[in-house]
Design a protein around this nucleic acid. Structure first.
Lengths: 141, 141
DNA sequence: TAGATACTTGACTATTTTAGTCAGGTTTAT
DNA sequence: ATAAACCTGACTAAAATAGTCAAGTATCTA
C-alpha cells in the first residue's frame, strides 16, 4: 500500500500555495521550481483541483492560482478526492450482487477493510491545509 | 492509495486457517476453494509466511498449514511485513543525503506523511488474527 | 512400497497503473 | 503585440501487480 505521487504532489503544491495566499497568485512555474515537480504534471493536477473548486485560476501575466476557500476549510480529504487519490481496500464485485471474490457472502475480512478505510479517512478529514502550514511556519522553503 | 491483493489474500487466508487451527492442518487447496484465491498464488504467499515463521507446514497426505503462534499473538503488522506489503508514503532519496525531491530540506509535507504512516501502522499493530476470527464467529464460510 | 496428496521453488508474463511528456492551444496584463 | 501563464487531450515508458506455469520434493496411507 502506498500513496501515489499525484496525491502527494497535490498536497505539497497546495501547502506551498497556501503560504502565499492572500498576497498574490502563485504561478505553477514557481511551485514547480520550489517543490521540484514537473510543470506539465502540475498543470494536470491543478486542472482537477480547479474543477473541484479548491483553487481559482488567475490568467494572464502575473497570474497563477489562489485558494478558493480558507486554508482551514480545505481538508486533506477534499484534496485527495479531487485528484482521484482514493483509499481503497476491498474490491468487491458490486455489479454481481455477490460478496467478495465472487463468493456468496462478505469475505471473512470484509469488516476489517471497512474499519481500515474509516481509520485512514478520519485522519484525512481532521487535517486541514492550515494545519500543515502552521506546522512549518518556522521554515522558509 | 490502495491495499494490494497480496496483503488482502494473506490476511484472508490466515483468518480462514485460524478457524481450523488446533483441529487439523488446513490445505491450501481448501483455502483456495473457500476463499476464491488461486492455488499457485497462495503458494507464493505461504512460502513467505513460513519464512517469517507465521505458519508451519505439515507435509504429506492430510497435510497443510498450521499457525505457528497463537492467533492472539499474530498482529496484522506481522502479516503485512511478511508478504512485503508496506505502508509507504514518502520516497525520499536516502542515499543522496538530501531531502525530498532532491531539495535541501524536508518537503513541506514530510511530517504529515510520517504521521500518516504511524496512524496506519498503529491500526495494524492493534489488530490480531484472533480479533478477526472472533468478529466472524457467527459465520460459517 | 506405490502412489497420491500436498508442499516448494523459481521463472515467466499479461495487464494495469503510474508518472509523467508532448503538442497545441487560449486568455490577459502590460 | 507579445510574453507570461493557464488549459486540454493524447500519448508513452517504466514499474508494479497479479497472477500462471513447470518441475520438482517430502511424507502419509493403503
Amino acid at each position: 500500500m502506498k500513496l501515489t505521487s499525484k496525491g502527494r504532489y497535490a498536497v505539497m503544491a497546495l501547502a506551498d500555495l497556501a503560504r502565499f495566499d492572500n498576497i498574490h497568485p502563485v504561478s505553477l512555474r514557481d511551485i514547480s521550481l520550489r517543490q521540484g515537480i514537473s510543470l506539465d504534471y502540475l498543470e494536470q493536477i491543478f486542472s482537477k483541483l480547479r474543477k473541484k473548486e479548491i483553487v481559482q485560476s488567475v490568467r494572464g501575466t502575473q497570474g497563477g492560482y489562489v485558494l478558493n476557500k480558507k486554508a482551514k476549510e480545505i481538508k486533506l480529504t477534499n484534496i485527495f478526492d479531487a485528484v482521484d487519490e482514493k483509499v481503497k481496500t476491498v474490491q468487491c464485485k458490486k455489479e454481481s450482487k455477490k460478496g467478495c471474490n465472487g463468493k456468496s457472502a462478505k469475505c471473512l475480512t470484509h469488516n476489517l477493510w471497512d474499519e481500515l478505510e474509516n481509520h485512514i479517512n478520519n485522519f484525512f478529514e481532521e487535517k486541514s491545509l492550515d494545519d500543515l502550514v502552521k506546522n512549518n511556519s518556522e521554515r522558509r522553503i
